[in-house]
Nucleic acid binder design. Structure first.
Lengths: 139, 139
DNA sequence: ATCATATTGTTTGATATTCAAACTAATTTT
DNA sequence: AAAATTAGTTTGAATATCAAACAATATGAT
């Protein structure tokens, strides 16, 4: 097996491991995958409108309408209109939504911890540096 | 921002970048995400039965039945029964299925290339070593 | 050998996800 | 003021998914 092969395999094994870890974390909560992703975006970016939310999630606004409907019903978020432009609805996390975000974030920390635990401190630094590079330049 | 924070953020940015890259690649094909994942597993592991396929995909056998139905209809895969155990159906990629797998695999190589391009050869080696460790021990 | 148990895979009924296209209401451009 | 654009919702359709019930087959215990 050559170098490119090997790295490709490890990259996708890593990605799949991450994926199934995420899904299993979400399954322990009251949220569906779509809802959890929306909460992540809202927690990170604060109040945003439907269109931005759709763009961050990589779906259509129609899809986002449905997702936010559910989040409102479950009391994780609310729509608020603004007087500047009456077409726009800002989505805001409720108290409950913010708690869910914080909790999910804690899971992320836990996974990072788990990863750090198997690496030397030198490797930790290398990993951070490499990820920064890739995130800035490769995608 | 502390170290743990920073690494967590980079890890999830990386994961999300990977995710949306994957989805956009799949969207250019004739396949849905579920179908593409099934083809990936079948291409990697060869002939397997429904239960193994479901386990690799992390879904129930009911879900897998539907996915394989669709793959058969689109002529990417076939079910074959074996005489040793008449309950078991082995799923096999057709010629067309193998071509789809090879094509998808090529995309993976391309992404790896893209990632390698922004790293020094020293960093490449560090990344491979680190990913191997994480994949073996952290998940 | 026979009966109970376990296993493989399918079906069913329900909910969730997603999109494209049509639509409404509001804003901006001409 | 009319036309064009924009934000968001609704609708109709296909896909995804699960849990539970089910059918067919295989295995184990007595």
């Amino acid at each position: 097996m050559n170098y490119l092969d090997e790295l490709t395999q490890e990259l996708f094994t890593f990605f799949n491991g991450f994926s199934s870890w995420e899904n299993s974390v979400i399954k322990t909560s009251d949220l569906t995958v779509a809802e959890a992703h929306a909460i992540e975006v809202l927690g990170k970016h604060g109040q945003i409108n439907m269109k931005s939310l759709a763009q961050y999630l990589g779906v259509t606004t129609g899809t986002t309408t449905v997702t936010v409907d559910r989040l409102e019903k479950k009391e994780y978020a609310t729509r608020e209109s603004i007087k500047e432009d009456r077409r726009v609805h800002l989505i805001t996390l409720t108290e409950k939504g913010q708690r869910a975000f914080a909790e999910h974030h804690q899971y992320h920390y836990n996974l990072t911890d788990q990863i750090l635990a198997v690496l030397s401190s030198e490797e930790n630094e290398q990993l951070l540096k490499i990820l920064k590079k890739i995130n800035e330049e490769a995608f």
